[in-house]
Design a protein around this nucleic acid. Structure first.
Lengths: 125, 125
DNA sequence: TGGTATTGGTAACGAATGGATACCGAGACT
DNA sequence: AGTCTCGGTATCCATTCGTTACCAATACCA
């Protein structure tokens, strides 16, 4: 039997790195929210719901660094900062939305599996 | 201007939970590897590359709990454990593979953006 | 004239999670 | 006997997460 997969370690690392970026608990959610158009910081925070300023700031910095969003500061008082998807970000939106819609429509199956698993191994334990 | 997004907080949590599961650094990678067919523990570990036993065990337990993989133990010595995607897992494979291939073919653009960002804000600091 | 709200962000700290290493068990092989 | 195998656990330490407090600068209000 030959190995079906060989020297793909490098691919794996790159893929893993990008999946981490987009899978780091908030990024995918933020990207989907920004899919509707530019939003300012507080708006985004309210839309996502349950995220702290720190985490939203960190997430947005990461997305900005990787070229998925732009950050526009209006030097007013109080300050106003707009975030918007770049071209790259809008391209990413496709696959991410596909995953999100799959996740949305399969939530119940997953929860059912989870409960079944917990019933099997949890209570006796 | 009305809010484009309203009471979606619950959706957000469910989606975020599932994205965490599949985006937790290793899960997506493991799922794609298992897409080629059943594999045993060590085989999977080698295929993924760079993952520790502990993390692979944890990841597989999580995937099993959520109904994405089955775990089959052969009580031989030394032990043999096979992992295989369930129907749910194979369905998940579609969106995940889409994301992975996007990630693979856009690695360079992301790295370019990252380097540009770091050049802008890193060195001067 | 001074107190307070607004908005985006940082600093600091404890909590949770991630990862590397060591070890285990039980038989086969030398 | 000693050693290798394979899947897994236990332990420890590093990194990350998340909460809270605080900041700046102006507008508003008493």
């Amino acid at each position: 039997m030959k190995p079906r997969h060989a020297h793909h370690s490098e691919d794996c690392r790159a893929v893993s790195a990008i999946l981490q970026r987009v899978g780091d608990k908030w990024s995918a959610l933020v990207v989907t929210k920004l899919g509707a158009g530019a939003m300012r910081f507080g708006e985004l925070k309210a839309a996502v719901g349950g995220i702290s300023q720190k985490m939203l700031t960190t997430t947005l910095r990461g997305l900005e660094r990787d070229g998925f969003v732009t950050r526009t500061v209006f030097p007013t008082i109080p300050p106003r900062v707009d975030y918007e998807l770049t071209e790259l970000g809008r391209e990413l939106l496709g696959p991410v939305m596909a995953l999100v819609s799959w996740a949305t429509s399969n939530t119940e199956r997953i929860n059912a599996a989870r409960n079944a698993f917990d019933d099997r191994s949890g209570p006796a334990q």
